[in-house]
Amino acid sequence: MSHSEMETIDTRGLSCPQPVIMTTQAVKDALKDFEVLVDSEASLENVSRFLQSRHYAIVVEDKTDHKVIRAVKQA
């Protein structure tokens, strides 16, 4: 798989636990880096907590009406 285009999981407007479930899929597919779009603080916390528990480093970027969580698998 090339990394030229980062995978994006769009969870905007979906309520818990769907953002986490969708992120689970990416983790199961062993993606090394991807981004998750969230639009609620609760989803941001849940997805971040899940990714950190699966050893991903995360960076959160603020957009106007949502946030982007960039996840990179730690060695």
Binding site: M1, E7, D10, A26
Partner: peptide, 18 residues
């Protein structure tokens, strides 16, 4: 279907082979 759920930008399963 997961595709529908994830929306057009999130078909990482389908785009995974690129």
């Amino acid at each position: 279907k997961r595709r529908k759920l994830a929306g057009p930008t999130a078909n990482h399963n389908e785009r995974g082979g690129k």
